[in-house]
Design a protein around this nucleic acid. Sequence first.
DNA 1: CTTAAGTCGTGATTATTTTCACATATACAC
DNA 2: GTGTATATGTGAAAATAATCACGACTTAAG
Lengths: 219, 219
Amino acid sequence: MDQNKIPQATAKRLPLYYRFLNNLQMQGKTRVSSKELSEAVKVDSATIRRDFSYFGALGKKGYGYNVEYLLGFFRKTLDQDEMTDVALIGVGNLGTAFLNYNFTKNNNTKIKLAFDADPNKVGTKIGGIPIYHIDDLEEKLDDVKVAILTIPANEADRTTERLVAKGIKAILNFTPARITVPDDVRVHHIDLAIELQALVYFLKHYPLDNLVPSKEEVH
Amino acid sequence: MDQNKIPQATAKRLPLYYRFLNNLQMQGKTRVSSKELSEAVKVDSATIRRDFSYFGALGKKGYGYNVEYLLGFFRKTLDQDEMTDVALIGVGNLGTAFLNYNFTKNNNTKIKLAFDADPNKVGTKIGGIPIYHIDDLEEKLDDVKVAILTIPANEADRTTERLVAKGIKAILNFTPARITVPDDVRVHHIDLAIELQALVYFLKHYPLDNLVPSKEEVH
DNA sequence: CTTAAGTCGTGATTATTTTCACATATACAC
DNA sequence: GTGTATATGTGAAAATAATCACGACTTAAG
């Protein structure tokens, strides 16, 4: 594929840059330096310049970056024009949070439909997104390649199998279960309990203070 | 402090190991190999052995690890006995999800109190946790060092200032805003929109297939 | 036109993390 | 006992990521 040489760490920061560039443009700013951007997104300025440089020389020495140009460039690179449909599996509190979240703002992803087992929820809409019964997953899920998994952990494996069988290629997994998938399916785990525990562990064992300069950004 | 030499990447995996060891013990298993554990948590077995080795020789060659012993060891290391109180700021859908989540199971963290601006929520309880008005933050928040931030982005900066002024030392930030804090306060950002966008980016630009062996675990 | 201040892009370095691969030790079947 | 399969712990290598530091170029002021 096109830019396979871009480090994963860089790729994960691109949406962040994109969002802040959008903010800048809305504020009417026409130029920005890596130093300014650094303060806004809390990423070292050298890292930002390096990240951008993977895409070529996007800035001007002595000037910085042109916000509009950079934004246009990233729009293409991040496929911001092209919408990606997403299915949400499990309309609990976390799932509902996603449905209410306005993902379409500055975003190339859209939750198109949701599934749940609760008959009180099935047939209704949240945030304009229809909720179907989980039993109808195979029937309703078509041409969707990305799923957000916000169901109880004990259902994770069975539901994952169904999603994979139906052709899902990427899963954002919020269950504590570490799901098993074929090699061609990508899974990102976001484990809320573990994030909290890790934060507490760092708090207790990795004191920051003024001794160690700004180590607060780990995630 | 004590084990300052442990890599951060390792420290972030410890809660994960801990949880799966607990599962194993509940299943009545007395021994486990790094290979088995690897399949369960989706972390390379060499990485697991390396992680454990930072704490000394916890296993036995040709045998594996004793579940009970390992669990006891991690309980001490991860301070699983000692509870850490957490405050939740913002009882929207995401915040409610946290309150309903049973964090006390296998866990050393407990959400002790929550805050919101909605008068319909103030004075009630969710998951047994009392909700106070955000205006009473300074009054109610005492001896709590960790906060979960699940409020709208535009309130993030102001609320963060108040939390820091009150002595909070670690923040799990779910708002899209990159908050500014003094050097001695630790912040972990979990940006749901960005996680989803990054997943989609990887899906489109980093094909997995059988060519690249099991690259699905990025997070 | 000259100069000073600002800023990028990047070679080189350093730091961090993962993975390989094997010597060494254990378990267990017979 | 003996032999075979099994697993650890770790030195070394590889992969990945972050940071330093500076030459080259731009801008803008005088």
